[in-house]
């Protein structure tokens, strides 16, 4: 049973597609590099307790590709404009992977409309010695194999790939926008760590114990850069923990927001 409905939002010159629904305090979910636009089970579960707002980033899926789309900072400022446009207060910010990076870029700039932040295996910060994979060098099949801890999920995802996924419009669009934001430097902003101390809302870092894209060794050093940030490590989880450990993830998000 789904709870979210698809609509769109226009902020200045850019229209983005948005999944929205549920009841409770507002929760802005920022998707990862694979794209958004689909209501996944963990989102349905979050909609039990929150009003979930899940846009597709500029450059992704059904959203526009604006002229100004050059780097991660542009996306962060877009979302600050979007929050202002929505006029929401006390928003719970939840970002996954690339979306977690965007969440941190938003929060170092302005937290006046934000109540809490949950960053799920976020990109964005280079941690010396912490292993990273290179999704740009992987085939779609290898990306799933590396992304999931439970290879049954990977096999199912590979089975469901379209015939020639490399020729799929959304795939090509998302990959290009992912590259625009994360190709150089790979998956991080070398200036972000200097300003993470500015994040003054309760912050929670969630990581899969077996993440082959951004290893779990990122979690503690990153939390150490954000005042008061807590860490939850989910066992038997890879980078795509939002799919393979949906219940545990929702529980982690709920308990963090409940504690605050």
């Amino acid at each position: 049973m789904t709870k979210l409905t698809k609509g769109s939002l226009t902020v200045r010159d850019c229209t983005v597609s948005v999944l929205r629904g549920g009841e409770g305090p507002p929760l802005l979910f920022l998707h990862g590099a694979g794209g958004g636009g689909i209501e996944l089970p963990f989102m349905t579960a979050l909609a039990e307790s929150y009003e979930v707002i899940a846009p597709e980033h500029p450059g992704f899926g059904e959203s526009d590709e604006p002229e100004w789309f050059d780097n991660i900072h542009d996306v962060a400022y877009f979302y600050l404009d979007l929050l202002k446009e929505l006029g929401l207060d006390q928003v719970h910010l939840v970002g996954m992977s690339l979306g977690g990076w965007i969440a941190m870029e938003i929060a170092v700039r302005d937290t006046s409309q934000i109540a809490s932040m949950t960053a799920i295996c976020p990109a964005g910060v280079h941690v010396a010695g912490a292993a990273t994979g290179d999704p740009f060098a992987w085939s779609p099949e290898e990306t799933f194999q590396q992304g999931f801890y439970n290879q049954d999920f990977a096999a199912r995802a590979i089975e469901n790939l379209p015939e020639a996924v490399e020729a799929d419009d959304t795939w090509l669009k998302n990959r290009m926008s992912f590259a625009r934001l994360a190709w150089d430097p790979r998956l991080h902003d070398p200036h972000l760590s200097k300003w993470l101390h500015r994040i003054d809302v309760p912050t929670h870092i969630v990581w899969g114990a077996h993440d082959n894209i951004l290893s779990v060794d990122h979690a503690e050093p990153l939390a150490g850069m954000i005042p008061g940030a807590g860490v939850t490590i989910l066992p038997e989880a890879g980078h795509f923990l939002h799919i393979e450990q949906a219940d545990a993830l929702v529980q982690a998000i709920n308990s963090h927001i409940g504690e605050r």
Partner: peptide
């Protein structure tokens, strides 16, 4: 070389990428 090396994201137009993927 694998397609991920030959044609990284946005290296060529989406239409060209689609032609190559079809002729993979």
């Amino acid at each position: 070389m694998p397609i991920e090396f030959l044609l990284p994201p946005g290296y060529t137009s989406r239409e060209s990428m689609k032609r190559v993927a079809a002729a993979k």
